[in-house]
Structure formats: C-alpha cells, structure tokens
Simulated scan of single mutants.
Amino acid sequence: MFFTYFGQYLLLLKSVFKRPEKWRMYWKEIIHEMNEIGVGSLGLIGIISTFVGAVMTMQIAFQLVSDLIPSSVIGQINRDSSILELSPTITALVLAGKVGSSISSQIGSMRVTEQIDALEIMGINAPGYLILPKILAGITMIPALVVISIFLALTGGLIGGALSGAVTPVDYINGITDGFIGYTVAVALVKAFVFGFIITSVSAFKGFYVRGGALEVGQASTRGVVISCIAILAVDYVVTSLML
C-alpha cells in the first residue's frame, strides 16, 4: 500500500509542475497563499517561539548547577538548540496542523463538490492551479517564519532568563554572540525549505484524492496532518545526519 500511495503522490507532483497555462493567474494565487501561510501564521508562531525560548532558558539554567560553568553557556545552548532543532521542527509541526489541515480540507471539499472535475473539463490543469501556488508559498514563507521564530526564541530566552533570575541579560547576550557559526542557520533554512514542501504537498495530495462526503474530507485532513508530522520528523533526522 505504501508504494501505491507513494507512486500516486509522485504522479500528482508530475502534474503539479507542468507548465502553467497563464502565469498571471498563478501569481495571484501564489500571493494569496503566501499571505495565508505566512502572515496568517505569524501570530501563532511568535507566541509559541517566545515561550519556548523562555522555558528553554530556565530549564538549561536548572540543569547547569555547577559553579565552574559560566552562565553565558546558557545563551550558547539555547541559541544552538533554537537554530538547529526547536525553531524549524516546532514551527513545521505547528504549521502541519494549522496550514496542512486547511489545505487538505479546502482541496478535499472542492473534490467532493465536483469543482475539480469542472476545472478539468474546462481544460485547466487542476493539480497545477490548486497545488503549485501552495507549494511555492510554503517553501517561501515557512523558511521566513523559521527565521522569525529563531529571533523570537532567543528574545524570549533573554526575557525569561532576566525575569526568573536564571541568567543576567549581559551574560545571555554574550552567550548567544560568542562562537556563533553561520552554518547552523543554513542547516535550519534547508530543513524549513524541505518541511514547507512536505506540509503543502502531502496535505494537498490527501485532499486531492479524497472520495465521499464531509466525513471523508475530515478524515483525509487528519491523515494528512499525521503523515506530514511523521515525514517531518523522519526528514529532520536525515537532514541533520547529512549536514552535521
């Protein structure tokens, strides 16, 4: 069954990346999806990232009980953890639930109401028109959201450490600036790019081939989120092992 669905997924992607009929029509959809995925998710990602950064700072300070370890190490650990793992992965998992379920239910509803059939009858490449703008918006906006998430996680760590007394702002800032390696940001952006493709394409695939009515649309949306989350964690391991 896995190879059946995976082959069907690859055939759908082949149809998605066909040459568009009119780029002008696609550009409008791309801008709309960028607004939905990026701007629409900014508040949620901001709140989660800030609190995760603050909690991480307090937990790291709780574990580093030795007087021989300088408190600036708290900032270093929080920085590397946020850049390499927490911000890309948590952002992707949150967006898999928010954006992925929305994409799957939207396309699934169009399928069961025969709107996709109407597009195909009119000679429009339905997979390309419906899915390509979402994929392009996902691989563009999710890396941008990850960058914002990293910044807010580090800012949240500064605020959380200062309010709890775990680390002074001066020591924390020295920690996040000392020994910074820019390559870690490149790893995070590669992860975010791949995660964005997985979230949009897998969710669209589950919605595009749904059969039945409203109940099946909801089930397809749930399966799309579950598969996306599993794929994100698996790809996270692969990218980390290849790039680090």
Score class of each variant (00 low, 15 high):
A153I: 14
T57V: 13
R24V: 00
I48K: 02
G160N: 02
S203P: 00
T184L: 05
N78L: 11
A144D: 09
L95V: 11
I199H: 15
A96G: 04
V202D: 06
L215W: 12
S72F: 13
I74Y: 04
D80C: 13
G128T: 07
S72Y: 15
I232R: 07
G43R: 05
Y129E: 04
I124Y: 06
T168D: 02
T91L: 05
G128I: 04
P143C: 15
M141R: 10
K191V: 00
V147Y: 08
G179T: 12
A204M: 09
P88Q: 11
F197L: 04
E85Y: 05
D236P: 11
L86N: 14
Y129I: 05
Y237G: 00
K134F: 00
F151V: 13
L44P: 11
Y129M: 09
F51A: 06
S241R: 06
P133G: 01
Y26A: 02
G165I: 05
T177V: 09
E120A: 01
T91I: 04
I159D: 08
I181L: 04
V185R: 07
I30P: 07
V65F: 14
F193A: 14
G212H: 11
L189M: 13
S221K: 02
F208Y: 07
I37G: 03
V238E: 12
A214R: 11
M141G: 13
V217Q: 14
I173E: 10
I142E: 04
R79C: 08
L119P: 00
A204S: 06
A61L: 08
F208R: 03
L13F: 11
T168F: 15
E33D: 15
I159M: 12
L145H: 00
